[in-house]
């Protein structure tokens, strides 16, 4: 057992840190800068990160879920407003269904509450839809594709989702997915949302800590007050615990049998989901009144966290999966 990142994994992380820090939005106004967004999107496309879970020569993915999680965490930390989790989950679905690689930019559709992969004929939403022309969903267990036409809806200001009409025309793209394959896919989705949440927490903590070091009240930096210090210390603790669960969940996706991978990912998701919301709320609290304005990035972190929390199951459904995974009639 050695859970340190390998030299290659550290190099991947360093590349992701550099790319994200050079092109991430540094203010709410930056979110509307289409030149920056286009540059970020092109830079991410050039890295090939969205193809990490496409099928290699042996049918397995090019890279493990750990590599995908490393990228997801850094994109979350930087509030990267470009697609990654959606296209990665789409590539995984195509690989598991034995389908050819997508022609254009593609993402996945979930039920409209984001809780599971979408089923044809039911209300659905394409997640992480920036730049995507189409989304994948299931029809009778078979993998199908629908085109995206509706305008994007921003719960998460960095990753818009796109409603899909019930009667959207679906084109078959792959064979029926096995239960095991869908379980693995869900485990990957949960692990990637955990990684995104860890990144979001790190970014929100950094934002609030920087503010606490410059904002003065009562003649002192507010970061010198224990009440503020303890809020931020608790945020660090929640983030570090989350990081350990997220790392393990990412490893488990490819290393453990499907049911164990899902139970592991669900435990991590329960932990990261609870922590993610609290940490982002703390970031708003530390900013005081400013934190409740549209111009402060704190709510952008919270909004991103809320979507990642709901994606494929938040705290409640994840705890149910943990109990089910433990067996012994606990479910």
């Amino acid at each position: 057992m050695d859970v340190r990142l390998s030299a290659e994994q550290r190099a991947l992380r360093d590349t992701a840190v550099d790319l994200v820090d050079s092109l991430r939005p540094r203010s709410v106004a930056d979110l509307g800068d289409s030149q920056r967004t286009a540059k970020l999107d092109a830079a991410v496309a050039a890295t090939g990160w969205r193809s990490l879970r496409e099928a290699g020569a042996d049918g397995g993915p090019y890279a493990s879920a750990v590599e995908a999680a490393i990228v997801a965490e850094e994109l979350g930390r930087g509030l990267a407003d470009t697609a990654f989790v959606g296209p990665t989950l789409a590539a995984e679905l195509r690989r598991l269904a034995g389908a050819a690689t997508a022609d254009g930019a593609e993402t996945v559709a979930t039920k409209s509450d984001f809780s599971a992969v979408a089923l044809a004929g039911q209300p659905a939403t394409a997640i992480d839809g920036a730049g995507a022309a189409a989304a994948l969903l299931l029809a009778g267990g078979e993998l199908v594709q629908v085109s995206l036409n509706a305008p994007a809806e921003p719960l998460d200001l960095t990753r818009p989702h796109v409603p899909i009409p019930r009667d959207a025309a679906a084109t078959p793209v792959g064979r029926t997915l096995t239960t095991d394959a869908l379980t693995k896919w869900t485990a990957l989705g949960l692990a990637l949302t955990c990684a995104d949440l860890v990144g979001v927490m790190r970014g929100a903590i950094a934002l609030a800590t920087d503010y606490a070091k410059v904002r003065r009240q009562y003649g002192a930096h507010i970061g010198s007050f224990q009440a503020v210090q303890h809020l931020l210390a608790d945020a660090v603790v929640a983030m570090e615990g989350s990081r350990s669960t997220a790392l393990h969940a990412a490893w488990a996706v490819d290393a453990l049998p499907a049911d164990d991978a899902l139970a592991t990912a669900a435990g991590a998701k329960a932990y990261c989901a609870r922590a993610g919301r609290t940490v982002c709320e703390t970031a708003i609290q530390v900013h005081g009144g400013i934190g409740n304005t549209w111009e402060c990035l704190a709510h952008v972190y919270l909004r991103r966290a809320l979507l990642s929390i709901d994606l494929l199951g938040g705290v409640g459904p994840s705890l149910e999966r943990v109990l089910a995974g433990a067996g012994h009639g606990l479910q």
Binding site: V3, G241, S244, T245, A270, V322
Partner: peptide
């Protein structure tokens, strides 16, 4: 059942966290 599930999640978190810290000690 919810309290039990959280105890499972938390104790498993600590197990993985210790693996992470002990690996860092290498």
């Amino acid at each position: 059942r919810r309290e039990l599930a959280w105890a499972m999640v938390e104790s498993e978190m600590l197990r993985q966290h210790v693996c992470r810290r002990l690996s860092d000690r290498l």
